[in-house]
Design a protein around this nucleic acid. Structure first.
Lengths: 345, 345
DNA sequence: CTGAAAGCGCTTACAG
DNA sequence: CTGAAAGCGCTTACAG
């Protein structure tokens, strides 16, 4: 493999001149620059990443720490991951993806071995044990997911409080008085999936303000149990006219559950979901829903991280918490409840 | 950050002794080894990855080149990716995930900069333009996905020929005479998704041998078009009694399509799918199906790659093509066709 | 505008 | 069994 020494020799200049000609960090005679560039082409020269990292203390690699919870639907993570890797590459960085169980060890390994210039943590828990290590690492870090304490890190997430409120508000505007919220499995919450109860609490609070009855449940993450869950919830609250879903499996199972019960959407029951539009398209989830904004969150997180790495953000600058506002993507699964229609009809 | 020099100083030995004590590459007095280990703990020493890579020409990083086709369901890729990253970590390697559009450039960049010790290519096309670069790279490479030419690389894939045959055979055993096969969108095939036509051709051939009528179609990748597609296929072949699905979106849309037509499974129509069991569980895909074996393929590929990297496979040893045999995971969506039942009843 | 040299932090023959 | 030294391939002050 060609080295910078080979380039220098072929171009007839010193190694430092070759290096500067390529980095542009000092003025170079155009003729010399041209000779160096020609040599690079001729030899197919690419700098050795390890040598460069050793000399500059920069790797141009980001560490991406994924975290998979039992009963959480893993493939949904890919959209965050691709947002991160694509944006990183656009900014000149590669991405080391770490999926190992023990995120703390992984973080220590990457930080201490100086394999990466910064970290993106995915699926951050309320009290995420990775954060202590991250705050002590020399590399900056950015989170996708809102923890209890945000000092020392930049945070990006969907605004789950606003999401819970929005779901209830929309139903309220339509005239609904009794709703059922189906969340992810309780396991997910126990393992630190704070977004689940953050959405649920906000919904509950808003419902109380508006005088709406809201029944909140955890649902299973797969068939056939989620189907049984849904039937149970509907049996328990026969007068509920709206369903809020923060659970992909529930959204997938609901159409056949409602069909079996002879309920039509939105005539008999209104539904609002919270999941990725991509899943909605491929898996025929026919409900108006709030998108996870995974790609957008991943990209924004990387932009902030790279700005910190490259010193474009003052070291003392305060950390940011950026929450994306939820928007309902309409698919026609909401309407006024039947009681209202009957009165007006 | 502590260096090996710091460790040596604290332990009161030379740098080479410290290095050998940690690598175990030469005999060390137990007492010396203990002192070095103590120093490592005290200082929290971790070797600098760049320096080590420079000295050894080994990075202990694998390059994972993903490839996303328009109209192919991206999240399905995550299961391959996690198989790779988990197995790599188990064997002591980290994984650089590359998702950029131009896989050839990415491969050249990683190979020439010596950022990785080997490559895993995902979703390999029939004539994959990455293979030329890979064959010339100094690092070994392994493919998940079977290309036309396999020289110089190790290959792992589900046996799609056997899959096509198995689907038809199973239907034949049950007494079906007329089947419909719904494949992924034509786009996927055009972009090199050879597995689509490999399965379809094998199914067609077997059907011809057995005297079964097989109607093959490309289906859309999302709603509502896939629902229209399915209705169109069923309208065109009202006497068909079995459906073979090589298309996730079709599997997700089918239940409601059949319900609307008043068809029951398996009484009125038998169905066999080909998709991941994980999707089946979460998205309520209620059909007997052949799993993609994504995790297994990713792991097997990494094991082979690491064996080559570490020289446990002779340089001249022939390359392997490992095809996993398909198995039908029963979910009760197949039965004898109604005509047969009627005759026997 | 260019070159010779030091240094980044490791590993590993070479000597003893 | 241990140490002094060279070398991996870069970048970047330091001189000129």
């Amino acid at each position: 493999m060609a080295t910078i020494g080979d380039v220098a020799r072929v171009a007839g200049v010193s190694r430092s001149t070759a290096s500067y000609a390529l980095s542009g960090k000092r003025a170079i005679t155009p003729a010399v620059r041209a000779k160096v560039e020609e040599a690079v082409r001729e030899l197919g020269y690419t700098p050795n990443a390890g040598a460069r990292a050793l000399a500059t203390s920069q790797t141009r690699v980001l560490g991406l720490l994924a975290r998979f919870l039992e009963d959480e639907f893993a493939p949904a993570m890919l959209q965050y991951i691709l947002g991160v890797t694509d944006e990183a590459r656009r900014l000149g960085y590669d991405t080391l993806l770490v999926s190992e169980e023990d995120g703390v060890r992984a973080l220590q390994r990457l930080a201490n071995s100086r394999m990466v210039d910064g970290f993106v943590l995915l699926n951050v828990a309320e009290r995420d044990d990775r954060l202590g290590v991250l705050r002590e690492a020399r590399q900056p870090g950015v989170l996708v997911g809102l923890p209890e304490r945000t000092s020392g890190v930049d945070v990006f997430d969907l605004d789950f409080v606003a999401t819970g409120r929005l779901m209830v508000d929309r139903m309220h505007e339509l005239g609904h008085h009794e709703l059922i919220l189906v969340s992810q499995p309780e396991h997910v919450v126990e393992r630190g999936g704070a977004y689940v109860w953050r959405l649920a609490n906000a919904a509950r609070e808003r419902a109380a303000q508006l005088g709406i009855g809201l029944h909140t449940y955890f649902g299973s993450s797969s068939q056939p149990s989620i189907g049984q869950d849904l039937n149970g919830f509907l049996d328990a609250h026969p007068t509920a006219t709206g369903l809020l879903l923060n659970n992909e499996a529930a959204a997938a199972a609901l159409p056949s559950v409602l069909a079996a019960r002879g309920l039509r959407i939105p005539e008999d029951i209104s539904v609002i979901g919270r999941y990725s539009d991509d899943f909605a398209r491929t898996f025929s989830l026919p409900f108006s829903s709030i998108d996870s904004a995974a790609d957008e969150l991943g990209r924004a997180a990387v932009q902030q991280l790279v700005a910190r790495i490259e010193g474009r953000i003052a070291a003392g600058a305060p950390n940011i918490v950026h929450l994306i506002s939820p928007e309902i993507h309409e698919r026609g699964s909401t309407a006024a409840p039947r009681e209202i229609l009957d009165q007006s009809g």
